[in-house]
């Protein structure tokens, strides 16, 4: 088996390890032998054209999608060995979606307290304290008793980030967290993510926000047609992408900005 990636070797085990992962939707192959290793504290930006398999890749990590071949190990836990491990993996992996997916019938605070109480068995008072702490951190503490529909898109997405953080995950996955937002709200969400990165969170972000990638990413990974075609430091990737598909893709992205 080929080594998963070419970044400097770490003595620690990677937090996320994907080995030769293949995924089909029926007869359509959405992931083609994907290898990826993410160490603790690393920030990865994943980009590529629409339909290239970015969402599929990160959704395989927390088993929102099943894959047919290969192996994914999260924090030393491999689900292939033990199906029960899906639960543990999901507790360690936070996810933020393009469409926020807040629970409309719960207040912001209740959204943030649900999983710690129901999944981790945290006491109510402690869950509330943690929730308020993270809501303050995403600058939305004063909206704790509102319902999601009473918030703007940017505010909702920040709540979604806080909700995921309340489970105190080891990794955060972001699937185009700003692409459903009005332009004026993109910055507040990106700033939240930058803050999180500066605090040392391990992150995999599917995003086309190139400014964010330059500022935060340790590595940019470019995908097309279910394959990882290029991996590089952001500077290298944006200045001189080596794969023709990456060049073309960057050309299109820049044309839009």
């Amino acid at each position: 088996m080929t080594p998963p990636s070419s970044h400097p070797a770490h003595t620690e085990q990677p937090l996320i390890l994907m080995e030769a992962v293949e995924k089909w939707y029926g007869s359509f192959q959405a992931l083609k032998s994907v290898n990826l290793s993410v160490s603790k504290g690393e920030k990865i930006v994943l980009c590529g054209p629409s339909g290239s398999g970015k969402s599929t890749l990160i959704r395989c990590i927390n088993h929102l999608e099943v894959y047919q071949k290969g192996r994914i190990v999260v924090d030393g836990i491999s689900v292939a060995d033990n199906p029960k491990a899906i639960d543990i993996v999901r507790q360690e992996v936070g996810m933020v979606f393009q469409g926020f997916n807040l629970f409309p019938h719960m207040t912001v605070l209740q959204n943030c307290m649900l999983a710690p109480i129901r999944v981790r068995g945290t006491g109510k008072a402690e869950a509330e304290a943690t929730a308020r702490q993270y809501l303050d951190r995403v600058h939305i503490g004063n909206q704790a008793d509102k319902f999601p529909a009473q918030l703007s898109g940017g505010q909702q997405q920040r709540v979604a980030i806080a909700r995921a953080l309340c489970m105190q995950p080891k990794v955060m996955l972001f699937d185009e967290p700003t692409s459903a937002l009005d332009p004026e709200m993109v910055k507040e969400v990106l700033d939240t993510m930058i803050g999180l990165a500066q605090d040392g969170m391990t992150m995999i972000c599917v995003t086309h926000e190139m400014g964010f990638a330059r500022q935060v990413a340790d590595r940019v990974i470019f995908m097309a047609e279910g394959e990882i075609l290029e991996e590089a430091a952001p500077d290298t990737f944006f200045r001189s992408p080596s794969h023709p598909r990456a060049k073309q893709f960057l050309g299109e992205i820049l044309a839009h900005h």
């Binding site: 999901r90 996810m95 469409g99 997916n101 629970f103 999944v119």
Partner: peptide, 30 residues
């Protein structure tokens, strides 16, 4: 109910039954 609601619940570590009972049921009945 949008499937994103179910996915958000699962991603938080809730079981399928919990997702149904705590997340899906009330908006569905509404």
């Amino acid at each position: 109910i949008h499937k994103g609601q179910v996915e958000a619940g699962l991603a938080l570590g809730l079981h399928k039954t919990q997702v149904f009972r705590l997340i899906v049921l009330k908006p569905a009945i509404r």
